[in-house]
């Protein structure tokens, strides 16, 4: 079973490496990722959001909705832990 799993994992890894062969070079300033959408964030951040830190401006403004989702994930996880564990905590206290 371990051998089967190992082969499976190696296949998955090999396929992922096969995918990287065509990728833009690492650290290439002309790669599509650096050319298509992101220049606007870099050039216009101060003008449009008045924030010199680009990560902040994207996180809280351009893609602020993702951050809403992110906080919801935290809330979900917190509620999930309460849902799962709360009852048993109370029971333990009574013991």
């Amino acid at each position: 079973m371990k051998i089967v799993n190992l082969i499976l994992v190696l296949c998955i890894g090999g396929f992922l490496i096969y995918g990287t062969l065509d990728m833009p070079r690492w650290g290439d300033p002309d790669s599509p990722a650096s050319k298509h959408v992101s220049p606007r964030y870099i050039q216009k951040t101060v003008e449009e959001t008045a924030t010199p830190n680009m990560v902040t401006s994207i996180l809280a403004d351009y893609r602020g909705y993702d951050t809403l989702g992110e906080t919801t994930v935290i809330f979900t996880a917190g509620m999930a832990c309460i849902l799962l564990l709360r009852n048993s905590i109370r029971k333990n206290r009574n013991d």
């Binding site: 065509d22 990722a33 298509h36 959408v37």
Partner: peptide
């Protein structure tokens, strides 16, 4: 997908992808 298109928006990605159809990525 982001590494070769530089975009995350579905409509934008769909517009950019046809040129890249023979890439491994």
């Amino acid at each position: 997908i982001y590494s070769v298109t530089g975009s995350l928006n579905i409509a934008d990605v769909a517009r950019l992808l046809p040129e890249l159809y023979n890439s491994n990525v």
